[in-house]
Design a protein around this nucleic acid. Structure first.
Lengths: 341, 341
DNA sequence: GAAGGGTTGAGAAACGTTTCGGAGAACCAG
DNA sequence: CTGGTTCTCCGAAACGTTTCTCAACCCTTC
């Protein structure tokens, strides 16, 4: 149906190699007149090169694969993933790469995910926030296939881009501490993900460093979702001795906590302060505006694309990169009541 | 580097065709013992089929292309696109299709966008809210390449999925009208996009039908962005006779309008009512909650994927489908002041 | 034991490119 | 005029699959 290089060659009575050279300004030169007639006929026939065939011989696809944390329905609604994907897409466009999204859901497919790494359709793969249990990253590394993780565990042979969770958590906790809070709870994310685990540990470390005793019942599990944040907050608020502040491992859980407080007539920040993490767009326009820790997800993802492209082009692999966070103080935090009185 | 079908054949001293049949349960049967040894060796060698080579001969890629409205930086941050993409990805996963995102930015690349349609990497393409000026859709149709539009102009040979903008606008305007508003402004989106134009026309039609005279200065251009909504709202609020209600062609502009009102100490909804369109997640948690028109973007996009897949599989093309909207009344609308007194 | 059918497997074509080897022509210097 | 270099351009190989054709073999059945 579609015109091929052969059709052009036939019409001009020249060989396909000549046509290829003419079209690509290829490794060999062709006389100007022939080149022009080739281009003319190509246009007439509405010729489009078949990228698959080209990939076949060149081994390059100019396409980057993207693997989300786990493909259940609506993962892509996560603001975190949204920002990461946006960063990847922008930078990929700049690097003249298209993006192939891996969409398969089931466990089986997940197991076969590895195929994407070596099935020829992509030149490299970016894993966004892979779970610890995810074998694909290790597999990728073992195959010497170019790949990168965003917010993953640093691994040999894998480009790694992450954020300085420790100092991010310290800044959030420090902010609450300076306001006078000593009863600080934590709503943690999915502990099979790097960011969640590290933030929980950093929370515990902060308490230790400031001689505040760690209380198990003040740590809720929020699964990184709004709903999870709500549930965790509900538990915290029904404790005999509820905390005066909650530090949440991401903004979605913080929003959930906020909504739960609202629905229980608990005032934020007067009765309880809330801090999030990520600075997603949704954290700004709620009432009250959410104090949060900004992490540059977009830049981080873009850097991953750039480094991956460089590696694909044969450059030396870039060292693991850690981005800094920034505390964004808004209206959801204030001094604890006891402290005021 | 990676193992191929030939390596397996060589190791077992059998032909590649036999290996292929064994691996695929192919069109021919192979004796059980041979089949087992093939699978065993395949596993040993860590064999992964090269999808590019397979595409080459089968002409299928099990991949769907997605073209965003126009690829400038950060298009993908748009909540609309976000919801659409999420819907597409979910359904694509269910249909065992991967998703290839077209990311190229510049005008030139845009011109060459057509390549994606016939370059073999995808079996079909979905255009999300294409501009009128976009030639690619027509080109796709002329190439008899399977393609669909989400919120685009219905076109022969293109699957079309859109929303009933007329009745959506009528419900929003009707709500304001019933509250007593007669001075209703409109902030329009990019008029080179189908949804924006149709909504503007529906707004004008509503005024006509209710014998309210149309006032040019009460129509602002908001480009579908928060910033555009802000600017348009700023102009409306500085008019000698400002409107008592504003109907915005999407939620982002409505949020912009809301923020602009806030910053000018204009109370919403007491001083001015605001209605949006889309029901994006961000419209719910602002203060006050935004009254808006829900359009099922996710379902619409998923339907596009399903229909596209069916067309690719040789089924008859589905008729253009129009989805219904639903008015979501929240806190950003109330009776006009004059009316109350 | 020959005809006919089914099973098995080897070999090769095909998909559309890129790029190499090499043949012939043209050109230039000595 | 000869030897070498440069320019043209054709033919063919290669990439890794799928799937067709065909030959060889085995098993029935008459």
């Amino acid at each position: 149906m579609a015109a091929t290089i052969k059709d052009i060659a036939k019409q001009l009575n020249i060989s396909v190699s000549t046509v290829s050279y003419a079209l690509n300004g290829g490794p060999r030169s062709v006389p100007d007149d022939i080149r022009e007639s080739v281009l003319r006929v190509a246009k007439e026939l509405n010729y489009r090169p078949n990228r698959v065939a080209r990939s076949m011989v060149t081994g390059k696809s100019d396409t980057i694969g993207v693997v989300p944390p786990e493909v259940t329905d609506n993962v892509f609604l996560s603001p975190y993933l949204h920002l990461a994907l946006n960063g990847i897409i922008n930078e990929a466009g700049r690097q003249h790469q298209d993006v192939l999204l891996f969409t398969r859901c089931s466990e089986v497919d997940r197991d076969e995910l590895a195929s994407i790494l070596v099935d020829g359709r992509v030149d490299g793969v970016i894993f966004i926030a892979p779970h610890f249990s995810e074998k694909s990253v290790e597999l990728a590394a073992s195959l010497h296939s170019p790949c990168a993780t965003v917010s993953g565990v640093p691994l040999d042979g894998v480009l790694s881009f992450s954020v300085d969770n420790e100092s991010g958590v310290a800044s959030a906790m420090g902010h609450l501490y300076e306001l006078g809070h000593r009863k600080i709870a934590h709503i943690a994310g999915r502990l099979d993900m790097q960011d969640a685990l590290v933030r929980l540990q950093a929370y515990q470390a902060f308490l230790r460093n400031h001689h505040i005793s760690y209380r198990e019942e003040w740590v809720g599990m929020g699964q990184f979702t709004i709903e999870g944040g709500r549930r965790a907050m509900a538990q915290l608020l029904t404790l005999p001795e509820p905390p005066t502040a909650v530090f949440c491992a991401n903004d979605e859980m913080a929003l959930g906590a906020l909504f739960e407080a609202h629905s229980r007539q608990v005032r934020v920040p007067e009765d309880i302060s809330i801090v999030g993490f990520d600075m997603t767009p949704g954290s700004e326009n709620v009432y009250p505006g959410l104090t949060t820790v900004r992490q540059p997800i977009g830049e981080l993802s873009a850097a991953a694309v750039r480094a991956l492209k460089a590696l694909i082009d044969g450059k030396e692999p870039q060292e693991p990169t850690v981005f800094q966070t920034e505390l964004i103080i808004r209206q959801s935090t204030t001094c604890p009541k006891e402290h005021k009185s």
